[in-house]
């Protein structure tokens, strides 16, 4: 049963030249205990999607349509005060840079406890649960960690604290905004393992935002690839890696360095520029950069169709692709 269900989400951001569509009709659902990877380049709308769920879009940006359901409750129809209690309470987020995600002037324990207090947990109980949360993320000597200021902790320790803070209230949905990109490779692996462990323990629905398909392969059950504010392809991770149904997914996969490559030749790149959201073409937004484009692609924007295991917004089935791209 899906815990998080995003239905036809639209978001815009105000600019001098009017409102810019940054999320253009995203639909996505995540079950309890499932991790869905949301992949895309900068500006593809993946972070806006995540911040919409939390209700923390930056000034000037707003959700302009659609629904965001958590356990069947539409977050977008809630009043601001109720919306606030869902933040941290049912939907929590962990962030990209653990060095800056914590308030430097508060002890780590106080920062975890204040989240609990904001949701009506009383002082003594909040203290107890803070220590339990710190212990749960595998940090030794919780009392000592709780009394520390963030600058005393290493990057990995801080990310664990951020995770402890996010999960202290036992949310149903966890949004992970590239929480491993700022960390060393070994620490990355530890954090990935930790989130996976906690997902199992608490039956969390996790939305994992990243530009790194390697991380997705490691942790996600399913993947949604975003391009120009829409989902280009959504598929089970295994299927996407085995047989991508969208040329953009294929291009992304081709640009991952493979550990079996013996010759360090240049990685294939996707030519051309990401689309300009102020002037989207009438057709498929990927068409100008697409190796598989056909004459009809520039005329209308494709709607998602079910093909293989995937939902793909592409007119051209894999069978018609030229082999050059497939080789990647």
């Amino acid at each position: 049963m899906s815990v998080l269900e995003i239905v036809d989400l639209h978001a815009v951001v105000a600019t001098d030249g009017g409102e810019l569509p940054v999320v253009r009709g995203i639909s996505l659902s995540i079950d309890a205990g499932e991790i869905v990877g949301l992949v895309g380049e900068s500006g593809s709308g993946k972070s806006f999607t995540a911040l919409s769920v939390l209700g923390l879009l930056p000034d000037g940006a707003r959700v302009s349509g659609g629904r965001i359901l958590v356990d069947g409750e539409d977050l977008l129809s809630l009043r601001a005060a109720e919306r606030r209690t869902r933040r941290g309470g049912t939907v929590a987020m962990i962030y990209q840079d653990p060095m800056t995600a914590l308030n430097p002037l508060m002890t780590v324990g106080a920062q975890i406890a204040e989240g609990l207090r904001a949701h009506g947990v009383d002082g003594a109980e909040a203290k107890k649960r803070t220590l339990a949360a710190i212990e749960e993320v595998g940090l030794p000597r919780p009392e000592r960690i709780a009394r520390s200021y963030p600058h005393r902790l290493s990057g990995g320790q801080r990310q664990r604290v951020v995770i402890a803070s996010a999960l202290a209230l036992r949310p149903k949905v966890l949004i992970a905004d590239e929480p491993t990109t700022a960390l060393d490779v070994t620490i990355q692996q530890q954090i990935l393992a930790l989130v996976d462990e906690l997902r199992v323990a608490h039956d969390l629905a996790v939305l994992w935002i990243t530009h790194d398909l390697g991380v997705v392969a490691r942790i996600a059950n399913r993947v949604a690839v975003m391009y120009a504010g829409r989902i280009a392809e959504a598929a089970p991770t295994r299927s996407l890696f085995a047989a991508p149904q969208h040329p953009y997914s294929a291009a992304l996969l081709a640009s991952i360095p493979s550990p079996t490559d013996t010759v360090r030749g240049p990685l294939p790149q996707i030519g051309g520029a990401p689309p300009d959201l102020t002037a989207l073409p009438p057709g498929c937004p990927f068409e100008p950069r697409c190796a598989q484009r056909e004459p009809g692609c520039a005329a209308t924007e494709p709607d998602p169709v079910h093909r293989g295991d995937a939902d793909t917004a592409c007119f051209v089935p894999r069978e018609r692709w030229t082999t050059a791209e497939e080789a990647g």
Binding site: V13, H211, L252
Partner: peptide, 16 residues
């Protein structure tokens, strides 16, 4: 976007 994402390291080389 107001938030700058890190450059897509390996995946996609953005336009110049």
């Amino acid at each position: 976007m107001t938030q700058e994402m890190p450059p897509a390291a390996a995946a996609v080389v953005p336009a110049a």
